[in-house]
Simulated assay, not measured.
Amino acid sequence: MKRSALAASALTVAALAGLTACGGGDSETDAAGKPGTGATASKAEEVSPAERLAKLMITKADVGEYAVEEPSDEFVFAKSPDEVTLDKKVCAPLAYAMNQLPLGAPQADLTRVASKDGLNGGYTYVTLTTYEDGGAKSAMTGLSKAVASCGDGFTAKSKSGTSPYDSVTAEPTTKAGDESLAFKSTMTVLGTTHTLHSAAVRRDDVIAVYFSVDGRAIAESRPSDVKLAATVVEAQNAKLG
């Protein structure tokens, strides 16, 4: 099993435990019905939302000793926001942020997981999303509202099981991008408490969401409190501009 798979599987274990004109020569076709050369050149230069995120996402070259991998989807809590139900609807953005699901209605999203010491050092997940005009601001507003409204916890459910979060607390964060926020949450698994840290940064119409977890500690019923990897967060924020 890949190392990133273990982190995801541990959260699932926790859940199961109770937890798309017309015009001149630059248009699609010219007056004779032939492809316009201007349109061809323009299309060749277009970058899709997904391609844009791929260029913005950190790689191992950006974070030194950290490995950067594509997370396994074998043990995910949910594959889309539609698969998640909440006892408190306002808390939905929190559940999405902590389970690598996109906030709001993005054009594209992309997730990677970074680790330095493998199974012993915890994982920092990075999820990038890009939006049409106004969508990123709206998504950040919803997340901020959730942090302020869900202090006494909430419960998220999916086909994988149930994840009860005991508390949510805003945390100080270094200003980055156009707006940023951070929060921590706690959850109890088989009588053991785990603290999970998250942050979100918006730059124009792109949001980066960060989430840290010690999957091995959860699987082994050891208390955990893994902070976000500063090297990873700083490198990703720098790539956002």
Rank of each mutant, 00 (worst) to 15 (best):
Met1Phe: 07
Ala10Asn: 05
Val13Gln: 11
Val13Cys: 04
Val13His: 01
Ala15Ile: 03
Ala15Gly: 04
Gly18Val: 05
Gly18Met: 11
Leu19Lys: 08
Thr20Ala: 15
Cys22Lys: 14
Gly24Trp: 02
Asp26Gln: 07
Glu28Phe: 13
Ala31Val: 07
Gly33Asn: 05
Gly36Phe: 07
Gly36Lys: 10
Thr37Lys: 06
Gly38Lys: 11
Ala39Thr: 04
Lys43Gly: 03
Ala44Leu: 13
Ala44Lys: 11
Glu45Trp: 00
Ala50Cys: 02
Ala50Trp: 02
Leu53Phe: 01
Leu56Pro: 05
Met57Thr: 04
Ile58Leu: 15
Thr59Asn: 05
Ala61Met: 12
Val63Ala: 07
Glu65Cys: 01
Tyr66His: 14
Glu69Tyr: 04
Ser72Asp: 09
Phe77Gln: 02
Ala78Pro: 08
Ser80Ile: 03
Lys89Met: 10
Ala92Ile: 05
Pro93Glu: 05
Pro93Asp: 09
Pro93Tyr: 07
Tyr96Phe: 13
Ala105Phe: 14
Gln107Glu: 15
Asp109Lys: 10
Leu110Thr: 08
Leu110Val: 07
Leu110Phe: 09
Arg112Cys: 00
Ser115Val: 08
Thr124Glu: 08
Tyr125Glu: 11
Leu128Phe: 02
Glu132Trp: 07
Gly142Leu: 04
Lys145Thr: 10
Ala146Met: 03
Ala146Trp: 00
Gly151Cys: 08
Gly153Leu: 12
Ser158Trp: 01
Ser160Pro: 02
Thr162Asn: 07
Ser167Val: 05
Glu171Arg: 12
Ala176Ser: 13
Ala176Arg: 14
Ala176Phe: 02
Leu181Trp: 06
Lys184Glu: 13
Lys184Trp: 01
Thr186Asp: 03
Met187Arg: 04
Val189Ser: 06
Gly191Trp: 10
Thr192Ser: 06
Thr192Trp: 03
Thr193Asp: 11
His197Asn: 08
Arg203Pro: 01
Ile207Trp: 00
Tyr210Ile: 12
Phe211Ile: 00
Ser212Phe: 03
Arg216Glu: 08
Ala217Arg: 03
Ala217Asn: 03
Ile218His: 00
Ala219Arg: 06
Ala219Asp: 09
Ser224Cys: 02
Val226Ile: 13
Leu228Asp: 06
Ala229Leu: 09
Ala229Met: 02
Ala229Ile: 07
Glu234Leu: 07
Ala238Met: 12
Lys239His: 06
Leu240Tyr: 09
